[in-house]
Amino acid sequence: MNLKKKLKKYTEVISIAQNELFASPSNYIARLFIHALRISVFGIIYSFVFNESGKTTIDGFTAVNAVWSLALVQIIYQCSRNTFTQIKDEILSGQIETKLNKPYSFIVFSFLDAIGQAPAKFLGFAAVTIAVLITFFGVPDFSIIQLVGFLPLFILGLILQTLNLQLIALSAFWIENPDPVFWITSKLTWIVNGTFVPLAILPIAFRTVSDSFPLSAPFFMGRIFEINSISDLGKFLLIQLVWIMIIMFFIRIAYRKGITKVSINGG
């Protein structure tokens, strides 16, 4: 009974988060449009690069693979937008006080609040991505294992990315402005996760480093073309799971320590 009530509580958080997304549909539609534009630009650049080099593949990777790879990474980005800013602002502005006086775990609430919009965002961004890529750049040859691996890689990746951002945002308990921390880590993420250059066309040594980096693990979905067997998929999913556990552990510690440092100005 108690578990049922708790489940209802946290599913309602997700439901409210989704309602909030659709409270301003124009904003959502504008983001979809910008996303379509962004992946189109990426597509054009990579098609041009491949054409100019006179090669149809780089390390077995085609221009279409490259474009799809980059676009899939972008979906994770779009689905986890605002997580850092929202949590950081709540801590710094003192808005956290309206959360701390409620009978729920603040870290669970803020995680679900952040991830709650993901299903609706995913549907929109995935639909736009697929439509743009199929229309203008074609469809790569997906193997069965790649198609099967797509969803679990996305789900675990999104969970991990949200947790990473949550952990960075919790640094607001200690430092007055965690924006530089976020800025540095997000730029580092761009380098190691294949936001601009698909990792599949980079040297193997770089990919190995990237494999064991918590900032790149959320974006394994972009490396879908490297998955050729169950064990490849299993390796990626296992890395994501391990990082989820580790980051959750750090979030718990950071929250426990940080909550004693909350300082909110009064009237």
Partner: peptide
Amino acid sequence: KSQLSFHLPAEDSFRLFARIYE
């Protein structure tokens, strides 16, 4: 400081609160 969602009707926030308070 408001504890209700700014963009949603109060009714939605009340429903959330009902769930939060079980």
